[in-house]
Design a protein around this nucleic acid. Structure first.
Length: 421
RNA sequence: GGAGAAGUAGCGAAGUGGUCAUAACGCGCCGCACUCGAAAUGCGGUUGUCCGCAAGGGCACGUGGGUUCGAAUCCCACCUUCUCCGCCA
């Protein structure tokens, strides 16, 4: 969420940001309400100051044995008036918050202005796309033939967009999780194994709520949501806390299952591992000083890229245009891996700098020194990487003419073999 | 799920209707003094937030309501933690 004071003093910047994102929010109405709120607040506080003063006099009078009846009677009206105004204020507050909570972050100046994903800009490309001497199969076809992925029975047992991994398929998934966590830990990330459910407050803190409720799975009769990414529990680790500046940056990596309702994607990527209601992911999360967050974004992105490089999977990096940028993000790089069956690059990681947008929602702050005012940290995160899509990429890119799958060199110690099949 | 206890500053803790909330007292932390230096000792300082150019004022004692002229204090609901019982991997 944006700073209310900032919106008030820089309405033009906010309007421009909203336009870049094609977000329809009536900022002028919002600002008028906000003005009204401040007037009301001022009035209520004046009344309260009067009440406090009089109450003190009552106390003094009673202590010295005097009669306070008149004062007490005169205060009855004031109390009622305060209560009434406070109700008005609460109502106005609610209206303002409803809008405030749906205003997206301001895109960073380096973000290309654009309409949608078609305006994303390629930043760099890595690796050589393989030339096949035979017709490559899609990963779901390979998975079925090798008997390592079972989509049909998952449909029976649970429903569409779920998968059973089996035998070496299951082992490959597990090997990738361990491989990625090991690599990130070696680079200084602290491993976290988070809860896979979080409460409403946490979902609000990272920006999933209130706007994107329909994308999440809620556990009935509880205040819990299945996490759509480990970003949510890990970023909320320090909610309502004040960190010491010397401890920053903090870097965490976390494996978790991720649960997404995938609302509005009916008919898209219905086959295979690309779009599931449940998938595994290793996530990177950083808490940074504001002045370092953009260099942290570069290094976090590089850390995610390093996994693809070690696995020798061709990929490219794109910077998302303002129209494609996520709600909470100020700048996002997507890593897209080459998938032969799609004959294109598909997203396998998304690395974002949220600046203080999440920190303000979740109230995560730091202090530069004793006596200094607390400031909001900058939060960042990125997939490092999505496991299911990595499995798909390995199956497709490493398939052999005889139907076997070669295991990437770096992963062989984790798999204990060179080929599946 | 049942019974009991507790939630106040970084930690421990006092306060049981009004001059006790910039919150006693203790520990910790920071500064100063003493010292060659340190320990010990002494003195001082140590919550956050909102409105306001400022002066000044408001709010917060787990959370939300209620009673009252006035609530940390009384009442109700909820949350969390601890102890015991039950169940369970």
């Amino acid at each position: 969420m944006l700073d209310l004071k900032f919106i008030r003093t820089n309405p033009e910047i906010v309007k421009e940001a909203l336009a870049k994102r094609h977000a329809a929010i009536d900022l002028d109405l919002f600002l008028r309400q906000e003005e009204k709120r401040r007037q009301l607040l001022f009035q209520v506080e004046n009344y309260k100051a009067e009440r406090n003063k009089t109450s003190e006099e009552v106390a003094k009078l009673k202590k010295s044995g005097g009669n306070a009846e008149d004062l007490i009677n005169s205060m009855r009206n004031l109390g009622a008036k305060i209560k009434e105004l406070e109700q008005d204020l609460a109502e106005l507050d609610k209206q303002i918050q409803e809008v405030l909570y749906t205003i997206p972050n301001i895109p960073h100046s380096s973000v290309p202005v654009g309409k949608d994903e078609n305006d994303n800009l390629e930043v760099r490309k890595w690796g050589k796309v393989r030339e096949f001497t035979f017709d490559p199969l899609p990963h779901y076809e390979l998975g079925k033939r090798l008997d390592i992925l079972d989509f049909g029975r998952a449909g029976k047992v649970t429903g569409a967009r779920f998968t059973f991994y089996k035998g070496l398929g299951a082992k490959l998934e597990r090997a990738l999780i361990n491989f990625m966590l090991d690599r990130h830990c070696k680079k200084g990330y602290t491993e976290i194994f988070p809860p896979f459910m979080v409460n409403t407050q946490s979902m609000f803190g990272t920006g999933q709520l209130p706007k994107f409720e329909q994308d999440a799975f809620k556990v009935e009769n509880t205040d819990y949501y299945l996490i759509p990414t480990a970003e949510v529990p890990v970023t909320n680790l320090f909610r309502d806390e004040i960190l010491e500046a010397e401890k920053l940056p903090l870097a965490f990596c976390a494996y978790s299952a991720c649960f997404r309702a995938e609302a509005g994607t009916a008919g898209r990527d219905t086959r295979g591992l690309i779009r599931q209601h449940q998938f595994n992911k290793v996530e990177l999360v950083k808490f940074s000083l504001p002045e370092h967050s953009y260099q942290e974004l570069e290094s976090l992105t590089a850390d995610a890229e390093a996994i693809l490089q070690e696995l020798e999977l061709p990929y490219r990096v794109v910077v998302l245009s303002s129209g494609d940028l996520g709600f909470s993000s100020a700048k996002t790089y997507d890593l897209e891996v080459w998938l032969p069956s799609f004959n294109t690059y598909r997203e396998i990681s998304s690395c974002s700098n949220f600046e203080d947008f999440q920190a303000r929602r979740a109230n995560i702050r730091f202090r530069r020194g004793p006596k200094e005012k607390p400031e909001y940290v900058h939060t960042l995160n990125g997939s490092g990487l999505a496991i299911g899509r990595t499995v798909a990429a390995i199956l497709e890119n490493y398939q052999q003419e005889d139907g076997r799958i070669k295991i990437p060199q770096a992963l062989q110690p984790y798999m204990g073999l060179e080929y599946i099949g």
